[in-house]
């Protein structure tokens, strides 16, 4: 990956430097085949009307690792995350400038088919949002969309996805039941499974545990650990313990600016920026 001068000067100490020199915390293992820039932002800004919610972000998100996004509420975490699979298209006033690339192609390019893009970049939302259908139909929704009709194949995918999401054992005997009957934590894992069933490359998680109790939260965190190495994962969280537990890299946003971006252990133990330090030590919410 070629580095531009502009890149180096940017405020965020992007892992542009880290690409070559991945810091591996003792309990973490490097993932094979990972570490290439999967999503790249260059001077990428996001606006709601005239309001610049995310300001000139320069960063590279590395494949197969878990990247956490932290920052006070309203700082643009969700906005940035949703920009990656163009979920912001739903908001009429929202538009972008600069460059955001996925696999070296412009996400906001003229030729981008956002439907195909979203198939590659799955998303799990803050509140579990299963469809009011059976568990099976929920998981099979994506594969069916993309043209799979064979019952056998669908069953296989459903089982595989549920196993990956560590939900299989709990629901294998009631796949025909309405998904709304599951507990909150189960619903959220179902949503992960549903996303996995379309076989995405990137998994975007926007505060996936904020609506869950501690036990369910722990299960989701375990799940993220399981999936690490197979998917590029980005997780927005307002819980710093969670960020430090599950992620390899952490981005700290403040008022739309990517203030600091570094290996998680480093960012939490030895932040370069005063603002980051204040935030993680709880000076402001």
């Amino acid at each position: 990956m070629q580095m531009t001068a502009e890149h180096k000067e940017s405020k965020a100490t992007g892992p542009a430097t880290a690409t070559r020199d991945i810091y591996i915390p003792s309990e973490r293992v490097a993932v094979s085949g990972g570490g290439t820039p999967h999503v790249v932002a260059k001077d990428f800004s996001i606006y709601y009307g005239d309001f610049e919610a995310v300001k000139k972000v320069n960063a590279e998100i590395l494949s197969k690792y878990v990247t956490a996004i932290i920052g006070p509420s309203g700082c643009g975490k969700s906005t940035f995350l949703r920009a990656i699979n163009r979920m912001n298209d739903l908001i009429p006033s929202c538009h972008t400038s600069g460059i955001l690339q996925f696999d070296g192609e412009d996400i906001y390019g003229k030729l981008t088919d956002e439907v195909l893009l979203r198939k590659k970049i799955g998303m799990v939302f803050q509140k579990p949002n299963p469809f009011p259908k059976s568990i099976f139909d929920n998981i099979a929704y994506g594969p069916r969309l993309h043209g799979m009709t064979d019952k056998k194949q669908l069953e296989e995918i459903v089982e595989r996805s549920l196993r990956k999401a560590a939900l299989w054992d709990e629901v294998s005997d009631r796949l025909e039941r309405n998904a709304l009957g599951l507990s909150g934590g189960q619903q959220q894992r179902l949503c992960v499974a549903r996303t996995l069933a379309v076989e995405p490359e990137i998994l975007l998680l926007d505060e996936p545990t904020s609506a869950l109790d501690p036990k369910a939260t722990a299960k989701i965190e375990d799940l993220i650990q399981e999936l690490r190495g197979s998917y590029t994962i980005m997780i927005v969280t307002h819980n710093m313990q969670q960020a430090s537990r599950v992620s390899d890299y952490t981005m700290f946003f403040y008022e739309g600016v990517l203030v600091e971006y570094a290996q998680t252990a480093q960012l939490f133990t030895n932040p370069k920026d005063r603002m980051t330090e204040d935030y993680i030590t709880g000076r402001f919410s």
Partner: peptide, 9 residues
């Protein structure tokens, strides 16, 4: 709607 679009619908 978000969930469905997010799955590439």
């Amino acid at each position: 709607k978000e969930a469905s679009l997010g799955l590439g619908s």
